[in-house]
Nucleic acid binder design. Sequence first.
DNA 1: CAGTCATGAGTAAACGTTTACAAAAAATTC
DNA 2: GAATTTTTTGTAAACGTTTACTCATGACTG
Lengths: 330, 330
Amino acid sequence: MITIKDVAKEAGVSIATVSRVLNNSSKVSEETKRRVLDAINRLGYSPSLIARSLAKKDLKTNVISIVVPFFTRDFFVEVLRGINNVISKSDYSIHLYNVERIEDKERVFSKEVFNRCEGMIIVSLNMQRKEAEFIKEMGKPVVLVDSYYPDFSSVYVDNKKGAYMATKYLITTGRKKIAFVSGAIHDPLGFMASCKRYEGFLEALREAGLEFNPLLHIQTGFSLEKGYRAGKTLLNRSIPFDAVFCTSDIQAIGVMSALVESGLKIPEDIAIIGFDDISDARYLGLSTVRQPMSEMGEVGAKILLDLLMGFDSSYTHLELPLELVIRLTS
Amino acid sequence: MITIKDVAKEAGVSIATVSRVLNNSSKVSEETKRRVLDAINRLGYSPSLIARSLAKKDLKTNVISIVVPFFTRDFFVEVLRGINNVISKSDYSIHLYNVERIEDKERVFSKEVFNRCEGMIIVSLNMQRKEAEFIKEMGKPVVLVDSYYPDFSSVYVDNKKGAYMATKYLITTGRKKIAFVSGAIHDPLGFMASCKRYEGFLEALREAGLEFNPLLHIQTGFSLEKGYRAGKTLLNRSIPFDAVFCTSDIQAIGVMSALVESGLKIPEDIAIIGFDDISDARYLGLSTVRQPMSEMGEVGAKILLDLLMGFDSSYTHLELPLELVIRLTS
DNA sequence: CAGTCATGAGTAAACGTTTACAAAAAATTC
DNA sequence: GAATTTTTTGTAAACGTTTACTCATGACTG
């Protein structure tokens, strides 16, 4: 490793002078500057960021950690995009951690990770009591996106209400037997969205005095194909239904194609409402509950940035609005 | 800021002892250890990573920078996923930089970014001579994914050949008037894929002695909707065509729905082949040129890791195979 | 009971920078 | 041409750790 001393020796000056050239602080004669620059070039020297931060008492890493599950899913990609929009305009850079299994979670919520960053944004993962304690102990600002915990700032939507709105709309327009396609209600990683939406869905039914046949509930993954299969399964069970509410657009689109394939007319025979409002939804005319995905990311990132600036260390809890978007499928 | 000195004073020991407790190296009596731990807790002390690295002469940041354009596009998300798979198993963490505009490129290819990381993976961006010089000067290992430049290790596919294979197949099965839907041929950020695929497409036509009517060429963005519009545009131009080759599946799916909507039969009236083999392609039965997206990411990350271990500092250039997957649309 | 050892804790020198301060050299003034 | 100022350079003390040495202390050996 080549240090500032080597450069100083090579250029025949003191290390202070080299440092001055490096930071072009105060005056250094042109002649000396050239000699130093030459030496730097000859040796291929590059100053140690570590030592520099130490000397400057700038003990910050200028890194923000983003913890996001399955970052290949539309929703997460959009959130990430929002976060990135904001962070990339600041001096911070992004450390990305993908969580797909429980072990990943442990790896991420560790001292090492927290020591390496100034703050953290956690997307969609539900906090366990123990985790929350640990994270609080780390003493770094943390913002939750699409998740809620009293002791951290957060941005989220009211998933229950969103599902309620959609279901209620279906009921209002005369649907009586509504199927429900969701992700896992009890997710091992702790996503709460499906669960909350299930609650909202049931509440709307209950309120209208409608029974729910559990055979009309499919729990499956978030992909076109899984949605398609869910649609097929529903049809195969030959329990009549006149609407489907899905916890994601991607599932809804899959379901829709299964139904269309079977010659059903949408929305005449069966209405469909999704959740998210991904770009395909608009294009396909899918009715859906729009959640501001990239905006959640943006807002979350902004809150974290504020926290890092030391403004206002109290917790912000921000609920962003959901909007029922009725298009052609309901 | 609370330092090791404060802890030492609080616990009534020397800083060396505190350090020993921190690293539980060598022997410290239970009694002292407890006192130190207590003090640490009371003060909420957390050691400075920076100072620690300096003292340990471990001047590494253990960070790998990933530069990726538009990380919301399927292809990039998949590549990222592959990279993440590999990196997350190492001690390195990922710094993510999204490049959407020329300015972003400048921001990313800067001293600051290189100083903050051990190595870099650049996805899909074509190197300019000047950029390459600069990057080489930084002296850190760099791997190109889905891109090629002689002076850097790289993983890529032969886009020209892929397009050639698809087009040739269409010709072999009797198609004579093949439309081409691609991204921008001259992309401002320097994506070469569309351009290369255009070349392969033209070569196959030329070889078969077929003329190409430029009006059958649509340059557009990568989304279902853009694809759909491209399909509509092709139909509106009322120039007969019997096949469409698209530079991405997502465009192909869009085109397909436009054609189906107009009552055309696929593949009887018009054959379609896409590129990528995203999960929807299989599900929809779309014929396509499969490129190993996440594998490219994985391999790229592995190469970088090897480079970082100091194995073999020569350049690796790895071409991964493309595979023509014929399903129902051709 | 002197001599050897093990154990636990302190001292001080690194690590690669920056920067206040001091010193030297050069330029300006009278 | 001495005195003064300005410019340029060097010296050394930080920054917060780790760690090789050293030094007590007390326990064991014969």
